[in-house]
């Protein structure tokens, strides 16, 4: 097992609210780690700390053994920390394929000099990215939507596009923030299948999800968070069996 992600004593507070209280987690290559807990537990904040949206007050984050603490958000993405968003944050005036074309770790069109003077190399990079994007869409059964505006698609498909866009980043770590919220039917099956495939390809995946059956189906290990703390780290069965956690989470 190769450790892809390791956080060491991550702390973050906003005034009196502690969103991250000495968080230590690890995710291995090929593993799908579930992250569960009530609203406000600090799950998304943890994603924000790992991906670089937030800076921790103290503590460190290692990707493949390398500290990423000083790298800003965009650099961490280039290092291979890919994430999705609860509310997708799609580029809403663009088509599906354009949403994906923006997202490779290295985007040829980002440099005005390269676009102006290195047209050949940009063109071949664009061609490769397009092929890759169509491949990802095809895997999700969405190849036919490539030229549609993202906002014209039903919600479940938009969720999948959010994942597809993130998959353009072929890095070692994939953070999925509530991929199943509001998703049902065919999109649900596709989402599960794709996440499983990505892990099988060797990625370390972390899923924040309220849908416990989704977590149970996908994850061998899960972490339970509340009030910025990790309360338990174990198999999904252990977590579900824990009476204290069930009370806290489900209020039963």
């Amino acid at each position: 097992m190769t450790q892809v992600l390791r956080t060491v004593d991550l702390n973050k507070r906003f005034g009196g609210i502690v969103v991250s209280d000495n968080i230590n987690i690890t995710i291995d290559r090929g593993e799908i780690l579930g992250l569960i807990g009530p609203n406000g537990a600090g799950k998304t904040s943890l994603f924000n700390l790992i991906s670089g949206v937030l800076r921790p007050d103290s503590g460190s984050i290692f990707l493949n053994g390398q500290a990423v603490d000083t790298s800003p958000l965009y650099k961490r993405a280039r290092m291979g920390i890919a994430r999705t968003w609860q509310n997708m944050l799609l580029f809403r005036t663009m088509t599906v394929i354009e949403n994906l074309l923006i997202a490779p770790r290295e985007y040829a069109g980002e440099s005005i000099l390269r676009v102006t003077f290195g047209l050949g190399s940009v063109r071949s990079a664009e061609r490769q990215a397009r092929e890759r994007a169509l491949g990802i869409l095809d895997r999700m059964g969405l190849a036919g939507t490539a030229e549609s505006m993202v906002t014209d698609l039903p919600f479940g498909q938009q969720k999948l596009i959010g994942l597809a866009r993130t998959l353009m980043n072929d890095g070692p770590l994939l953070l999925l923030d509530e991929p199943m919220a509001g998703v049902e039917g065919a999109a649900y099956e596709t989402m599960q299948a794709v996440v499983r495939q990505e892990a099988a390809l060797g990625r370390a995946v972390c899923v924040v999800e309220h849908n416990v059956s989704f977590i149970r189906d996908l994850c061998s290990r899960a972490v339970f968070m509340a009030n910025g703390k990790i309360l338990q780290d174990g198999t999904v069965e252990e977590l579900i069996a824990s009476k204290a956690l069930t009370e806290l989470y489900f209020g039963v």
Binding site: Y74, R92, M94, E98, N99, L101, Y107, E110
Partner: peptide, 27 residues
């Protein structure tokens, strides 16, 4: 400028800067 790949990046940045940056783009 605004038509090619660079323009696509400009549009994406204007649409959703946070997601744009988190995809590795230096907004």
């Amino acid at each position: 400028i605004v038509r090619g790949p660079y323009g696509r990046a400009i549009t994406a940045m204007r649409d959703e800067e946070l997601a744009f940056t988190a995809l590795g783009r230096n907004a």
